[in-house]
Design a binder for these strands. Structure first.
Lengths: 338, 338
DNA sequence: ATGAAAGCGCTAACAA
DNA sequence: TTGTTAGCGCTTTCAT
């Protein structure tokens, strides 16, 4: 039957129970002979240490909590996969919760994670209320927000340089001499959505251009509706910056299939993220790359640093990403500086 | 500081520690007055039961292990999201591991899951060796394989009716009077890949057609290579059945962008899964639907039944899915029966 | 309905 | 290096 205890192994190996424990504890010492005897007995019995019991004693569960919202935007499954792999490689397990962007829901879920004594929490693209942040701090559980910032700066976050990213798109559109520019923004309830828009607007402002802006809410349907709205105006845009790739695909679909508009000839479209699909020929989406691997590495490094040394202060990390030129835009007419 | 124990709550509430335990134990009894006192004290102290300790005693961790392979095929993130939501709703948490399709890797990962005393395991599209199956059985841990079958029938599995699905595609192609038919199959190391191919070949056989078959290995690059291979022949196919949507998109990209071939005019393409992207106008992929929600429900029901009653026998559940007609195929020239 | 007491399987001092 | 001992925070008899 399944449950073999260290005591049974000890009896079979003819040593004390603590000897068994030591053999299976990474930083412990036992004579080669003891190790040999114990390992043999353990193998014969099919013994494996009970991680729950170990976690209870040590206070270290070796589990990281991951809170993630919707998985229909390809960026997140990929982030999840990378985070999972990297964490596994470092000996951590992942307890996953899905949560909507509703703060109350997130709070419930984070609370549950804390009940499981997770050593740290990563939230991927969900917002945290500041009292929730406080509770985690009180409980001594480090948090890193992935792809979302937080105003207070009381919690670590890893994002791409969203403001600069938005500005890069603006600069490019100016070079291309687009005149009628629109922005279907990321959800304005998210820092990423706001920052990209802010950078974009600031960049266009230098050329004296004020874009039309509609909140796309990170959804396909809302983005398509926004597209139709934009194109119905007397002077439809000749370039649209979309708050992320996921929406940009919907925008391109709407433009081409519903409205019969050509991309990039009639309208240029630029996204944000550079998910793999952006490179597929069906879209060829020009977009600002979020360097996923570097973001994941930064997230994990930050989290583990905070786990190992609770006193390190939270920091907001921004990782720079390039504008990747593809076929959803034309080449600039002027030279592209730098 | 974070750690508040039931003992501290007991002292503050002026009751015994066991009283506190009972108040927080679902099936226990305490007087309204005690409940009131304890809840108030717990709130003031910010007490929450330690799930690790509880799990250690009861042997019920309320955790389900989930082993998943690659997340780049949209079908899996969606499945993960649905499984996660449904399991959360039933009070279970999910410990996620990513594993390659390498049996040794899967074995390691499942073993680790067992170390955490998970109450059950779901494997999504990864294969299990039979001795691993045996070990889980010995440990009394139920397993359900999602979207993969197992020959022995010693473990439960939930799949779509893959053989019938393949046959439906064959019937449709025959109705459309396609003559030169090819199949870029799912990985032949997977039951799903094999069953779909078997059904397809069997269906075509009734019309005396033998398709050209290449293993697409579930990858974009391999699928594109297979496409090029097929189209280079003296008599290129006029219809291709692709083992899943993920590859089918690559096939369509290759056909249209690389080879300048029209879909469906020159070649019809049919996929398998019906991921959301299949309905996007850029592809409009005709495909066999795998009813995700029903598959998820069946998976969870089966798993929980086995957890609640260890003696229920494993069963292989197959869920029927329709062929969804879109623009990657022409309408049949003959009437479509039924 | 309640409290006292005995562990769950393990780690971590402490002696030896 | 080893065994002995004392818990980790909780659930669960067993009396009361």
């Amino acid at each position: 039957m399944g449950v073999v205890t260290s005591l049974q192994v000890a009896e079979r190996a003819g040593v004390s129970q603590s000897a068994v424990s030591r053999v299976f504890t990474p930083g412990a010492s036992a004579s080669a002979k003891t190790v040999e005897k114990v390992k043999r007995a353990a193998d014969e019995l099919g013994y494996r240490p009970n991680m729950m019991a170990r976690a209870m004693i040590t206070g270290k569960s070796r589990i990281i909590g991951l809170v993630v919202a919707y998985l229909d935007n390809q960026f997140y499954p990929l982030a999840l996969e990378r985070l999972s792999n990297a964490l596994q490689a470092k000996g951590y397990r992942i307890l996953v919760f899905t949560a909507s962007n509703d703060k109350a829901h997130v709070a419930r879920v984070v609370q549950e994670l804390m009940d499981y004594q997770v050593e740290g929490i990563i939230t991927a693209s969900v917002g945290m209320s500041s009292d929730l942040t406080q509770r985690c701090e009180d409980a001594g559980i480090p948090i890193v927000m992935f792809n979302r910032g937080q105003d207070g700066g009381r919690v670590s976050s890893v994002t791409s340089a969203n403001f600069e990213g938005g500005r890069k798109v603006a600069d490019f559109m100016i070079e291309c001499e687009h005149k009628h520019i629109a922005h279907i923004s990321g959800w304005q309830g998210s820092s990423t959505g706001r920052d990209r828009q802010l950078g974009f607007v600031a960049g266009l402002d230098e050329a004296g251009i004020v874009p039309r802006v509609i909140d796309g809410m990170y959804g396909r349907i809302t983005a398509a509706a926004a597209t139709r709205d934009l194109m119905d105006r007397r002077t439809p845009p000749d370039a649209i910056f979309v708050g992320n790739d996921h929406m940009a695909f919907a925008v391109m679909d709407c433009l081409r299939a519903d409205l019969g508009v050509s991309v990039p000839d009639d309208v240029a479209v630029i996204g944000y993220d550079d998910v793999p699909m952006a490179a597929w020929p069906a879209y060829g989406l020009t977009t600002v790359r979020q360097p996923l691997n570097r973001m994941v590495d930064a997230t994990i490094d930050t989290l583990i640093a905070q786990i190992d040394n609770k006193s390190v202060t939270p920091k907001a990390i921004e990782i720079d990403g390039d504008l990747i030129l593809r076929t959803s835009t034309r080449r600039p007419t002027k030279g592209h500086d730098q």
